[in-house]
Computed example of a mutant assay.
Amino acid sequence: MSKRPSGMELAKQPGTIILPGERMANIGDSADAGQAVIRIGSGVTQKSSELLASKAGYMRYEASRNKLWVESNQKRYVPALEDPIIGIVQDRFGEEYRLDINGSDTATLSMLAFQGATKKNRPNLGAGALVYCRVVRASKNMEAEVSCIEPGSTKSWSGGETLYGELQGGTVVQVSLGMARKLLREDRVLKMVGNVPFQSAVGVNGRIWIEAGNCEHTMLLSLALQKADVMRADEWQEFVKQLWSQSKK
């Protein structure tokens, strides 16, 4: 995470292709007044007052969170601060869970890193449990750390109304990292999947959780999302129509 003045200048338009070493933005003098915060995501490195690309891909910028990153077709997820991800509990060590996050390494989750959790009142997760969480520490030299606490929220994990926490029921669909980020940017894609109510959670690590109330609808939604990753938009829309029409027979 890096400080920047409100007048940060992007060197390229978001969505354009960028190569390693190319300048993405100038963040000026971090000592200036009127500082804001820019979140540096995957594929971005800082050199003095400049943000440079460290890998090839599409330049992305999310104004609402002041987040800058490079989107590529990599298969393995690289943790970045504030990324929402879906982890799978592998084991428990003392007061921490170790999660598979679809990366080259695992991540740790404190047993108290849940909204309103205490030593006497906290989730008890078993191996294989799905957890929707956010990255709070990301380093090349250390294991990533995640949390299920949403800043500013007063809801408790025990009420089942928190944004982050254990995902119960449903199923997980594995998609490309690019598709996962697209689903976060354009929720209309999820809305087009079907005409039944469902719950979903999108992790930028390529995992999508879907729960539609019954197994048939959940499986149909999962299949539609998998196909969205490999079909053209027009082909996919036609496929979704046929999928739901056949399910009603």
Rank of each mutant, 00 (worst) to 15 (best):
V173E: 09
C215S: 11
R188D: 15
T154E: 13
G165N: 02
K191Q: 05
K155S: 10
V202H: 00
Q168Y: 01
G160L: 09
A201S: 08
G203W: 15
Q174N: 15
G194N: 14
M179H: 14
Q174A: 15
T171G: 12
V202C: 00
L163A: 09
L163D: 04
Q168F: 00
I210S: 04
E161Y: 10
L167D: 09
M179E: 14
V173C: 08
R188Y: 12
W157P: 03
R185Y: 07
L167P: 15
T171N: 10
G169H: 03
F198H: 14
V175K: 05
Q199H: 05
K191E: 02
L190N: 02
P197M: 12
L183H: 01
R181N: 09
I210H: 04
V204M: 12
V202G: 00
I208F: 02
E161K: 14
V173L: 07
L177F: 07
I208Q: 01
G213E: 11
S156I: 00
L184Q: 14
K155N: 09
K155T: 06
F198K: 12
P197N: 15
Q199T: 02
S156D: 01
R188W: 12
L184E: 11
G169K: 05
V173K: 04
K155L: 12
E186Y: 13
V204W: 03
L183C: 04
Y164H: 12
F198G: 13
W157K: 08
I210E: 04
R181T: 06
F198A: 10
C215F: 15
G169L: 03
L167I: 11
W157Y: 14
G170N: 07
S176F: 12
L190G: 02
Q168S: 07
S200I: 14
E211I: 00
M192N: 13
Q174D: 14
R185K: 15
C215N: 10
Q199K: 07
L184S: 09
Q168I: 05
G194C: 10
K182W: 04
